[in-house]
Design a protein around this nucleic acid. Structure first.
Ligand SMILES: [Zn+2]
Length: 398
DNA sequence: CGACTTTGACCAGCGC
DNA sequence: GCGCTGGTCAAAGTCG
C-alpha cells in the first residue's frame, strides 16, 4: 500500500527555466536591445530564485507528506485494532445501527493561521499561486494513490454498464440498476461509502473542478432547502454522483455529498476534492472509522488536512437530518470552521448543537502545520462559485 | 443544436 | 396495504 504512494517529481519546476530560456533566446535574436537583455537576465535570475524557493517548498511539503503519510497509516492501523477490540467488548452500542459517520474537520484556526501564513510565508500572491500549482501536483499524485487505495469505491462500473442499456426501456434499466445497487450495498457495503463536505458557500453549488449535470431535486424532510442531485458529466460513464443541500441550521453552509469515484482522468482543479474525498472514503472503508462510544478517536492527517475521527453518537444529531442516505457509511468533511469570518459561526455551532469534540476549539492538533497545503478550492472554508447560473427560490418538487 | 436545468412522475424501501 | 420519503428518470424548457 505504501509502495503506491508517490510524491510529484520536482521536474515540473523546470518549466519556468525553459520559459526563461526561451525569453532569453528571443532577446538574443534582437541583439540591438541590450537593455532588454539585461532585464531578461534579471528576470531569469528572479525566476531561478523563485524556482529554488519552490523546490525548497516542495521538499518541505514532501517531507511533511511523508510524515503525514506515516501518521495516517499508523492511525489506520490503530483504528482497525481498536475497532476490533471495541467490537469484541462492546458490540451493543445503541447507535450501532446508525451509519458510520466520521467527522473530518479541516483544521485551520481562523486568525492565527493567517498570521502564520504571513510570517512563515514571505511569499507574494504570485508565489502563492505557484505554490498552489505545486500543491496541485502533489494532490494530483495523491489522487492516483487514492484511486489505487480505493479501486472500487464506487457502485461503479456494473451500475453504469446496466445504465448503458437504457434503450431497453425504463423499467428494465431501472430494475437492473437497482439490483446492481442492492448487490453492491449488500455484498460490499463499502462501495456505498459517501463523503460529505460541509462548507460555507454563498453560491448554489460549490465548484470542485468537475462538470456536473443536475438530474433531480427534492425537498427532504427536516430541511426547507431542496436537495439537488448531480451526476458527473466529465465522462459519460462516470458513476460519481453528488448531492447538494444547504444546512437547515445555517443556510450559508452547503453540504455536498459525493458518492463513488471517477473512472476518468480529472481536470487538475478537480483532483483536490476528488483525492481528499476518496481518501476520506478509504479511511472510512478501511475500518478506521470510530465505534468507540462517548469520545472521539484519534486525529488523522490526510492530504495535509487533519481528519479527526469521532464517535458518530455525538455527531448524528447534527448530521443525520441532512444525511442524504443514512443507510450507507458517510464521512463528513467539515470546512465551516476555517474562515476568519466563520469564527463566530464556529462558536455558534458548538453552542447550538450537541457538544462534540469536533467543534471544540480545544481539540488537539486540528490545525495543519502547513496552511497552504489545503486545496486551493477550499481556501478559507469558502468555496467558489458553482456551475449553476440560476437563482431560484428553493421550491422543490414532489 | 447540444448541453444543461426544471419538474412531475415513478419506483423502492421502510414503518405502521 | 398504505402512506411517506429518498432517489431517479425523462420530457419539456432554457441557455449559450
Ligand atoms: Zn467523473
Amino acid at each position: 500500500m505504501e509502495g503506491l504512494l508517490k510524491m510529484p517529481s520536482p521536474s515540473g519546476l523546470g518549466i519556468e527555466q525553459k520559459i526563461a530560456a526561451s525569453i532569453v533566446h528571443e532577446e538574443y535574436t534582437s541583439s540591438r536591445q541590450e537593455d532588454k537583455l539585461k532585464s531578461a537576465k534579471a528576470e531569469m535570475g528572479e525566476v531561478r530564485e523563485e524556482n529554488e524557493r519552490l523546490k525548497m517548498m516542495l521538499e518541505r511539503v514532501e517531507k511533511d507528506y511523508q510524515s503525514l503519510q506515516l501518521r495516517f497509516f499508523d492511525t489506520l492501523k490503530r483504528e482497525v485494532v481498536s475497532k476490533k477490540c471495541v467490537d469484541d467488548s462492546a458490540p451493543s452500542h445503541d447507535d450501532t445501527e446508525e451509519p458510520e459517520l466520521v467527522s473530518l474537520c479541516l483544521g485551520r484556526s481562523p486568525r492565527e493561521s493567517k498570521k502564520d501564513e504571513k510570517t512563515t510565508n514571505s511569499c507574494k500572491t504570485k508565489e502563492n499561486d505557484d505554490l498552489d500549482a505545486s500543491l496541485t501536483l502533489g494532490l494530483d499524485s495523491k489522487f492516483q494513490l487514492s484511486k489505487e487505495l480505493v479501486p472500487d469505491l464506487s457502485p461503479a462500473n456494473s451500475l453504469e454498464e446496466s445504465k448503458e442499456g437504457e434503450t431497453c426501456g425504463r423499467n428494465k434499466s431501472l430494475k437492473t440498476l437497482r439490483n446492481g445497487d442492492e448487490e453492491s450495498s449488500q455484498q460490499t457495503p463499502a462501495k456505498r461509502a459517501r463523503v460529505s463536505v460541509r462548507a460555507r458557500c454563498d453560491t448554489p453549488t460549490m465548484s470542485d473542478g468537475c462538470q456536473w449535470r443536475k438530474y433531480g431535486q427534492k425537498i427532504s424532510k427536516g430541511n426547507p432547502c431542496p436537495r439537488a442531485y448531480y451526476r458527473c458529466t466529465v465522462a459519460t460513464a462516470c458513476p460519481v454522483r453528488k448531492q447538494v443541500q444547504r444546512c437547515a441550521e445555517d443556510m450559508s453552509i452547503l453540504i455536498t455529498t459525493y458518492e463513488g469515484s471517477h473512472n476518468h482522468p480529472l481536470p487538475v482543479s478537480a483532483t483536490a476534492m476528488a483525492s481528499t474525498t476518496s481518501a476520506a472514503a478509504s479511511m472510512l472503508l478501511s475500518g478506521s472509522s470510530t465505534s468507540q462510544p462517548g469520545h472521539g478517536g484519534g486525529a488523522t492527517l490526510l492530504n495535509g488536512l487533519n481528519f479527526s475521527l469521532l464517535d458518530h453518537s455525538g455527531t448524528k444529531q447534527i448530521y443525520l437530518p441532512n444525511s442524504p442516505s443514512p443507510l450507507f457509511p458517510t464521512i463528513t468533511l467539515d470546512l465551516t470552521s476555517t474562515a476568519s469570518s466563520s469564527s463566530t459561526h464556529f462558536n455558534r455551532l458548538s453552542s447550538n448543537f450537541a457538544p462534540s469534540p469536533r467543534f471544540s476549539s480545544t481539540s488537539p492538533s486540528f490545525c495543519s502545520s502547513e496552511p497552504n497545503i489545503l486545496p486551493a478550492v477550499w481556501r478559507n472554508g469558502y468555496l467558489n462559485n458553482g456551475t449553476i447560473p440560476y437563482d431560484k427560490n428553493p421550491h422543490g418538487v414532489n
